[in-house]
């Protein structure tokens, strides 16, 4: 007991010491007073109509950096994430075909009604986060992560057969995921393809018109900044993340006997 108290006290002293060092300026001034050159150019250019051959048409600098200025970085991050989902789906490919053995009645009526309201709220917040990704903090991945809490809670509260009853099948979710991934990749090369077709100059990950290329995604829609490709990438990323997470959850929440069948015979090698 005394040992525990000493240990916790030590941890708290370390946390306090680190906070105090940060307060004294161990990491430099917070918030930083001098902005680095690259950050300054991002901030100056993101929504600067005066240099519209370098702008991203998005008031949200973070999204502009993530999907436009450093789009290739984000592309590879996304590839890692979908690779992980793909691996899970491949390992459990047998499970997805089998009907589940569990027939649960779910939780009580009170929980079910509350859950119905909460689901609506979760999906609204998620959609708002994803669709306003180019205006306010947030974006496709954030919105998708928020939205995928809803199916997980729905399965727990209403039972696994809810998705079967509502005809949200594995294959439909897989199709949604593949379609949104396809559209995601298409919107990065759309202007390049269009440029090749019409014999004009276009680039991969092109958003707005550049000095050598007049091709451009729309920068505004009904007087609201659209951010060109940022909006489309956010929406497709939102759909792909939501459906990908939901697929993995439905597999992980299958009954134990169905899942264990996939791992049968491991003592004799796979």
């Amino acid at each position: 007991m005394l040992r525990d108290i000493i240990f916790v006290t030590l941890l708290i002293i370390i946390a306090l010491a680190l906070s105090y060092l940060t307060y004294l300026g161990g990491l430099g001034d917070l918030p930083p007073q001098d902005i680095r050159l690259i950050a300054r150019s991002y901030l100056n250019l993101t929504y600067n109509q005066g240099v519209n051959w370098l702008w991203a048409a998005s008031p949200e600098a973070v999204t502009a950096i993530v999907w436009d200025y450093r789009g290739l970085d984000t592309l590879f991050e996304t590839v890692v994430f979908y690779g992980a989902i793909l691996a899970a789906l491949t390992v459990f490919r047998g499970v997805s075909k089998l009907p589940d053995r569990i027939v649960s009645v779910g939780l009580s009526v009170v929980v079910k009604r509350t859950m119905a309201i909460v689901t609506l709220a979760i999906l609204t917040v998620a959609a708002s986060t994803a669709l306003h990704g180019h205006l306010t903090p947030g974006g496709g991945f954030q919105g998708g992560a928020i939205a995928s809490v809803a199916p997980l809670l729905l399965i727990v509260v209403f039972g696994k057969q809810l998705f079967v009853e509502k005809k949200v099948s594995y294959n439909k979710l897989l199709t949604l995921r593949n379609a949104s991934l396809g559209l995601l990749s298409l919107s990065t090369v759309a202007l390049l393809i269009y440029g090749l077709a019409t014999n004009e100059i276009g680039y991969i990950f092109q958003n707005q018109a550049k000095a050598l290329s007049t091709l451009s995604y729309p920068s505004h829609m009904l007087d609201v900044p659209l951010g060109g490709t940022l909006f489309f990438l956010n929406v497709f990323e939102f759909l792909a993340v939501t459906s990908g997470f939901t697929l993995v959850f439905t597999l992980l929440l299958s009954s134990e006997e169905v899942i264990l069948k996939e791992f049968e015979g491991e003592e004799y090698g796979y």
Partner: peptide, 29 residues
């Protein structure tokens, strides 16, 4: 507080929603 609202949005969803739910299901098994 460190002014990273983008991280907060995804962190709240994953760490308060998805991660405890998955772990509770694991604990159940």
């Amino acid at each position: 507080l460190l002014m990273a609202p983008d991280i907060v949005l995804v962190y709240v969803a994953v760490s308060v929603g998805i991660y405890p739910l998955i772990l509770i299901l694991v604990v159940k098994r």
